[in-house]
Design a protein around this nucleic acid. Structure first.
Lengths: 346, 346
DNA sequence: TATTTTATTGCAAACGCTTGCTGAAATATT
DNA sequence: AATATTTCAGCAAGCGTTTGCAATAAAATA
């Protein structure tokens, strides 16, 4: 039963005693609230620093105040994609004195919903949900309670959801068109998890680009992946053994593209000579690969920071009108795409 | 003043009413404590699920119970090194129903200490400190309060600190010896931040390996880096312009090694023909680089999971004796080291 | 059968904070 | 000068828990 916590912590009451005021006054000073005489405030502030006062988060939030922590829900931590976004989140949080509480769902839908409820009922002032897999299961209850949240990299079908994501369809369209412009007509596509809107949108962009240039859509050129590197490798093996292999591949993310590149080496092919490859994301890895990966850049860092800013605003000013934000993508030309070789056209 | 939180949350009291018992009984059921009649327990459990009860973390922890969150203090999130370790942490936490609260210090020493105090006084049941920069500033107060914490990748000089780290000196010794065995006698060394024990230990290992083989230690072959990729690139530029450039480089981490490789390409050199390079860590990037990086593997994922396990044990059984854990490193041979060329010896 | 022990539950007091209400003092208004 | 307003500070209730203590009922012991 060791009462470890209470042992040494200095509370608002200690400060009050030290400063010779009531504890409510201390609370008001701490929170910069309502009327408090400048002199009194100074006295309290002094006492606070002298004693090294540290507000107790849970007491504060329990009593109805702000906890200054926001919850972040992610499927996984292991990818650079996540790191980049988290970095953006973290930057904004840090400069606003907010803390981050992290929940990793490891792809379990049930966990996602349990976590959200717990966060919203407990400590968090707001919620950032990155790549939700099953948002409908819990978002409604958040909405009912008017609990602030922002979705990241997810185009919600619900109007009242606030979200930040890239122009995925556009980006995929540009990427595919780039390949077509290089003379490729058989373009393989590696999708992401198809239960995510971003994956769907990228496939849609691929299709529309083909259609715009009068190219047929061949379902055998679509490999359903899951955004992992190994799914990229598998995709290449698949493409190599179909009737009429593609001369270029558009991967829905850089990691899958890296998988393709890895498998390409294994099969003794040359990129971009034998095969053009384009990715999506522009994670740091893309530039480091050899050959360096041509890709559609989406501003991951910004995605995180903008979403966080949006959430913080929403927490501060709940009654304003906010709307979702769509970020532009950009074609980053590097070394993995090239004009189709005549012989390959056979 | 919107009282958002209280709006819909179902509390222990609601459950008690529903089940027709007192709220303390409900609490006992929730915590699996002391005597509670099997029948009563069942009734309460039913009521709980029926109403969708979710314990309020802060109230619980405020009242002296467990919060089931542990705090993690890191300098930065952006590297694969961090991702790997965090992954290990997260795995153990997830399987023990603990949550993670994340604090990023962005290399500011003052923040480090402020965060630690806040965590320890507020919500966390325990603390994981990854790559501390200035631990002496706050560890003592934690010790005094008997607050559970574990240091990761830091060999503490204080006996009572619990920490998990790799055999850095050993690893560096092995890496350097590998280079010597390939015939290299002028071996460049890129250090990490020299205020970290791991960086110091790796430098020590480098020196001792030279000494063991009767090779002189030349200070001009040591470049003080900071574990970043760009410091690796800078190091190469430096080495290329000194009197008698090294024929091999040992970088204190893979990221710096990647920087070397990047700069090598820029300078039109060939690895491993013109220069051997060995890294440290074996982050996923190492295998993906082209040429693939030879490196000293340290078990990052395990480092995280073992530290977490240790912390959790310590929380559960505070009175046991625990001791720090040193993890072995392993030489991973890939494509960036080779026998020295005769001509280069000139 | 009387008495002691044990199992089971409830009560109430914390935990450290926020905030509505109240009253006193200071200031402004008529 | 009398009254209304504003500024300032304290009191006390309450946020949702945990837990020591007390009370009761049931079981065991003498």
């Amino acid at each position: 039963m060791a009462r470890r916590k209470s042992s040494s912590a200095v509370t608002i009451i200690d400060v009050a005693r030290e400063a010779g005021v009531s504890y409510s006054t201390v609370s008001r000073v701490v929170n910069n609230k309502s009327y408090v005489n400048a002199e009194t405030r100074a006295k309290v502030l002094q006492a606070m620093t002298r004693m090294g006062y540290q507000a107790n988060l849970q007491a504060r939030s329990l009593a109805g105040g702000r906890s200054n922590v926001i919850g972040l829900l992610v499927v996984d931590l292991a990818t650079q994609y996540m790191s980049e976004i988290m970095h953006g989140i973290d930057d904004v949080l840090a400069s606003n004195q907010y803390e981050l509480m992290l929940y990793t769902t490891h792809r379990r839908k049930t966990k996602e919903s349990a976590y959200v409820n717990m966060m919203a009922q407990s400590i968090a002032d707001g919620l950032l949900i990155l790549l939700p897999r099953d948002p409908d299961a819990y978002l409604e209850s958040l909405r009912d309670r008017d609990f602030p949240y922002v979705l990241i990299d997810h185009r919600s079908l619900n109007e009242s959801d606030l979200s930040v994501f890239s122009a995925n369809q556009d980006g995929a369209h540009t990427a595919t068109t780039h390949l077509i412009d290089l003379g490729h007509t058989r373009i393989g596509m590696i999708t992401g998890w198809m239960d995510m809107t971003s994956a769907k949108d990228r496939l849609a962009g691929y299709k529309s680009a083909l259609a715009d240039r009068g190219l047929p859509f061949d379902p055998s050129l679509v490999f359903e992946g899951d955004f992992t590197q190994s799914s990229g490798s598998q995709a290449l093996s698949y493409f190599l053994q179909i009737q009429n292999p593609p001369t270029a591949i558009f991967a829905s993310n850089d990691l899958a593209a890296a998988g393709v590149l890895e498998a390409v080496r294994y099969h003794g092919l040359l990129v971009p000579d034998d095969l053009s490859v384009i990715g999506f994301d522009d994670i740091p890895l893309a530039a480091t690969l050899n050959p360096a990966l041509t890709t559609m850049r989406q501003p991951l860092h910004e995605m995180g920071s903008i979403a966080t800013q949006l959430l913080l605003n929403r927490i501060d000013e709940p009654d304003e009108r906010y709307s979702s934000i769509v970020l532009p993508t950009e074609l980053i030309l590097r070394e993995t795409t090239a004009q189709i070789k005549e012989e390959a056209r056979a």
